[in-house]
């Protein structure tokens, strides 16, 4: 046993966390560390993986037939409702600081009727214009709305949207694009201020998106936003 005492203690804690053996206070304290401590995350994942073969012993049991349709109904919300929900969740989440920041940055007025208008726009087009998308930003909801005008990702590939913030040295993934119609992507609060002045780009990736966290496929198009 050559591992240090701290490493040993962290590994015990990680195991207890995975097994739900920590009390509420310990669990909260552990999760606070886990949010930023990569080494601790790896310990947790290792324990999850290590113990998971124990569940091979669990017998399979069919749930009732009605559950399947309940599940599919629950995920079948029409996409048109999403901006209002995102805004509501954002307000309910008490993101006051972010709200103030947004107010300062975008000068939006939050009355009883939030302004869901697109404030910035960009055209994302490939060189041969076989792929054309129009992207708009709704500052009130921190959303980027992307509409495909022409083209789709090739068979077996997906398009991923990236933000390269001004002065940043690496792109941040904003999510995957639907292969047709409109995709709405909510930008995390901490990077939203960088959207207006940064560059957005679309890359071609394997299903599920870039496995590495950086674009791996060809860049289809890139653009900057301008005011509407």
């Amino acid at each position: 046993m050559s591992e240090s005492e701290d490493a040993h203690d962290d590994d015990v804690l990680a195991a207890e966390y995975v097994l739900h053996l920590l009390d509420d206070d310990e669990r909260r304290a552990f999760e606070a560390r886990l949010a930023t401590d990569r080494e601790l995350q790896v310990r947790v994942w290792s324990w999850e993986k290590r113990l998971s073969p124990l569940s091979d012993a669990i017998e399979v049991v069919a749930p009732s037939k009605t559950l399947r349709s309940r599940v599919l109904q629950s995920v079948g919300e029409p996409p048109a409702r999403r901006p209002a929900q995102a805004l509501w969740a954002w307000i309910a989440g008490g993101a006051v600081t972010a709200g103030l920041l947004l107010f300062v940055l975008f000068g939006e007025t939050f009355g009883p009727e939030p302004n869901l208008a697109v404030a910035f726009q960009a055209e994302l087009a490939s060189e041969d214009r076989a792929q054309v998308m129009v992207a708009g930003v709704i500052p009130a909801t921190h959303e980027i709305v992307i509409e495909r005008v022409t083209g789709t990702a090739p068979e077996g590939r997906v398009h991923e949207l990236w933000l390269i913030a001004e002065g940043a040295d690496a792109p941040v993934s904003l999510g995957l694009l639907e292969n047709q119609g409109i995709t709405r992507i909510r930008v995390p609060d901490d990077i939203a201020p960088g959207v207006r002045t940064g560059t957005i780009a679309v890359s071609e990736e394997p299903p599920g998106g870039s496995p590495s966290g950086a674009p791996t496929g060809p860049i289809v198009a890139a653009a900057q936003f301008s005011d509407v």
């Binding site: 069919a62 749930p63 399947r68």
Partner: peptide, 11 residues
């Protein structure tokens, strides 16, 4: 769901 629900329901 079809492929995994019986296992996960067991869990």
């Amino acid at each position: 769901y079809d492929a995994t629900s019986a296992k996960l329901f067991g869990v």
